[in-house]
Nucleic acid binder design. Structure first.
Length: 228
DNA sequence: GACCAGGCACATC
DNA sequence: GATGTGCATGGT
């Protein structure tokens, strides 16, 4: 799947963010939210000249909430950003670079303990801001794999993550690009039709697997009465 | 006007 | 451990 998507779309160069800190802010703001809305929010923070760990940490929460309004859930997200910024200040003196000097396993656990950072956000921060080879699982990952009968849909986050990490080389660049490609095509897998026959990755699986999940290529009508 | 978007925490059973 | 709910804007 990865090779097929990569050759079709080319490298996507994720994450869209100028600095590791901006990537982290984006990872929190994009929770259950369209990226275009996050861009507006980050632009507002930049315009206020506040896109830095200490400046954001010192900003009153109500003002931060106003700036990030376009990204939705702005009250809860202002609180979550503050939680992370306090953590970064407390544990690493406000230095992202110092934070990533921490061992990957330990850092992941610490991030998960921060209010507002769950598994996907933690892994996005580790992979896209820190270059740590940890696979990011999101709603699209589960939807696409389910649609291609590689999951039944009831697997938990860690199980899906392990599926990727135990079957691929432990390579941050590969994980980065693969997940980016997944998100890129994910929106084309309709949520409601369980057997959508327009799946972009049709042909990635063998014919038998495709038939099983109902995405087999339509066969050309043959014989008497066939369309011209 | 309904549906959707790169989740997460918290309450309840 | 499973399920339900609140959080909110902006694009299609």
């Amino acid at each position: 799947m990865h090779e097929k998507m990569l050759s079709h779309f080319g490298p996507l160069h994720w994450w869209p963010g100028d600095t590791p800190f901006e990537v982290i802010v984006g990872a929190i703001l994009t929770q259950n939210t369209a990226w275009t809305n996050v861009e507006k929010a980050i632009a507002n923070i930049k315009q206020a000249g506040a896109l830095g760990p200490e400046r954001l940490r010192k900003m009153p929460r109500a003002r931060l909430a106003r700036l990030i309004r376009p990204s939705g859930y702005y009250n809860i997200k202002a609180k979550r950003l503050k939680s992370f910024l306090d953590f970064l200040h407390r544990e690493y003196g406000g230095s992202v670079k110092r934070m990533f000097r921490e061992g990957a396993e330990v850092l992941r656990e610490k991030l998960l303990a921060v209010n507002g950072i769950g598994p996907e956000t933690a892994d996005s921060i580790l992979l896209y801001a820190g270059g740590v080879p940890t696979f990011v699982v999101d709603a699209y990952t589960k939807r696409i794999l389910s649609r291609h009968a590689l999951l039944d849909g009831n697997e938990k986050y860690e199980e899906v993550k392990q599926l990727f990490e135990t079957n691929l080389p432990r390579d941050a660049q590969l994980y980065n690009e693969f997940h980016a490609q997944i998100v890129n095509v994910g929106k084309n897998y309709c949520r409601r039709k369980p057997h959508c026959d327009n799946c972009p990755l049709r042909g990635t699986l063998d014919r038998k697997a495709e038939r099983k999940i109902g995405v087999a290529r339509p066969r050309r009508p043959r014989g008497r009465g066939a369309a011209k």
